[in-house]
């Protein structure tokens, strides 16, 4: 009897191991919602009709956004679906897209590095960063996304001088530490929903181990700057705004 129990346990463990070890690549499409942001900035702050209209247009445009995450065992690319028009105004399209994902995010988990390719007023920026450890709290709360059971994790992060709560729902069944924008390398599973103060990203379509190999070409021969240097450039734009533009 003991012998059979042992064989059974070994078989189960082997099976579980096989399931987890099998996922080597994937393609995820994320949808975006800015409704929480809209409610916070319009309903709670009693915005003027003009300001309310601006927030409404932004949130409506965001509904049409689709973002794609492709990954293999060590690298990923996260970016907007190419050629997707999200509103009737080109300027609004570009702005809302930047708000949701600043550009193309390349991640290499083995090297612990990320590069963001973005632009502002015609100038291109290649922003390099190290993937650092974030202080996520893993909770026991669970919910299901597209047949995957996800666990909830919470991170408190300082944004514009205030502590903000970031919520991620990650799937331990897909044991890769990738996710939207720069939320990579920290959680023990793929992030299928991410709630930031500005928007919520939710996986709509999950394709694991696609037939076509996923090859990621890391950007080469480019001038890069650090995250701090990029932030300083952004602070100059904010200072210009504070001085009346």
């Amino acid at each position: 009897m003991k012998k059979y129990s042992l064989i059974y346990i070994v078989a189960v463990l082997f099976g579980v191991n096989q399931i987890f070890a099998q996922i080597t690549s994937g393609k995820i499409l994320y949808n975006v919602s800015m409704e929480d942001y809209y409610n916070k900035n319009v309903k709670e702050k009693e915005a003027s009709p003009q300001l309310e209209k601006m927030h409404r247009m932004t949130a409506d445009a965001a509904k049409n956004i689709q973002l794609e995450l492709i990954f293999n065992q060590e690298q990923s690319i996260f970016q907007h679906q190419k050629g997707l028009s999200i509103s009737d105004f080109k300027e609004l399209d570009e702005f809302v897209k930047y708000l949701i994902a600043k550009g193309v995010y390349f991640t290499n988990l083995t090297k612990g590095k990320q590069i963001l390719q973005t632009s502002y007023e015609g100038r291109k920026y290649n922003v390099r960063s190290e993937i650092t450890k974030q202080d996520w709290t893993l909770t026991k709360e669970k919910k299901e996304f597209e047949k995957f059971i996800c666990n909830k994790a919470v991170l408190v992060k300082e944004i514009a001088g205030k502590n903000r709560e970031i919520i991620a729902w990650y799937a331990p069944e897909i044991p890769v530490s990738f996710g939207p924008v720069d939320y990579v390398g920290n959680l023990p599973g793929l992030i299928l929903e991410l709630k930031l103060p500005i928007a919520t990203y939710t996986a709509g379509k999950i394709e694991l181990n696609p037939k076509k190999d996923i090859k990621i070409d890391w950007p080469k021969d480019i001038d890069t700057m650090t995250e701090e240097e990029y932030k300083k450039e952004g602070d100059k734009v904010k200072a210009r705004l504070d001085e009346g533009w």
Partner: peptide, 26 residues
């Protein structure tokens, strides 16, 4: 006001600059 709201939620000066430009134009 719109640029301030955007900066408050993102902490990103570029996003605030873009927000101001697009809100003014629209």
């Amino acid at each position: 006001d719109y640029a301030d709201h955007v900066y408050d939620q993102t902490g990103d000066g570029f996003a605030a600059g873009k927000a101001f430009t697009v809100a003014l134009a629209l």
